[in-house]
Amino acid sequence: MTAPGVVRLRPRSAAAMAAVTIVGLFGFGWPLLDARLAGASSQTAHSSDASWLFVGLLTLLLVIVLAEISEGGIDAKAVAVLGVLAGCGAALRPLSGGVTGFSFAFFLLIPAGRVFGRSFGFVLGAITLLASALLTGGVGPWLPFEMLGFAWTGFGAGCLPRMTGRAEVYLLAGYGAVSGFLYGLLLNLSFWPFAQYLPQQIAFVPGGDVYTNVVHWIRFDLTTSLGFDIPRAVGNAILILFLGGPVLAALRRVSRRANFNAVPTFSPQPSEGLPTS
């Protein structure tokens, strides 16, 4: 049923994706690791330098991934579907509003990653966020982190095991809940070191050991962001549960209609009834 490889994943694009994933893990996780940059200076202002560095590095790597994937791996149909789905996602994102933390954009991204494959999910996640930021004039240092978080969500949706029928919708709904929750936790990590105004028990300790920072981070999640993460997870699951089936059907229909990666087959003998001249 699935049509993997709408966006072809060549070894070089895979290498670029792996690189951005590794750097992204560092970029999100440096506050939890024993950060050399954070510990280098006692002045609190310098502790955020590491984060700024990763903003630049992740932007650069996302650019490389998009360039690598688009070079030869994308055709007109994939670009058109990418653009239209990203446009829908970008239009849906402000509708849901940031108040509850719940975002409509997930419910398109996850079925699309499922139907069109993991690399398509990766690119769609990144491009949806980019288009949304450009539309609302919200380009800023948070953008690469959001793009990467969404890209991972789309990629993960493409990696889910093969299932059909109602089970598939339950699977996607469960994934939507888990990914919506994890997305919140991850994005907390990206701005948490900047939030130096927090009380000491939940604040980032520059140069502190791993255990302290992990405990503080979990406390921070529990006390501040759970009110955003749980509605997002529940909202994703409910939307996919109710809309997942028709959305999957619509996406599969377009994947058949556009006939992605069709391989022409030629029969050895010309069929009868054709004029022979």
């Binding site: 994308i74 829908c88 970008a90 690119v123």
Partner: peptide
């Protein structure tokens, strides 16, 4: 900004342009 992207990002840039044009239509 999208128009002045380097050539290597052309396809991704087109996808974003399509998205920008499409969002108001949606």
């Amino acid at each position: 900004l999208l128009k002045s992207l380097p050539g290597a990002l052309y396809e991704a840039g087109v996808a974003v342009t399509v998205a920008l044009a499409f969002a108001p239509q949606a």
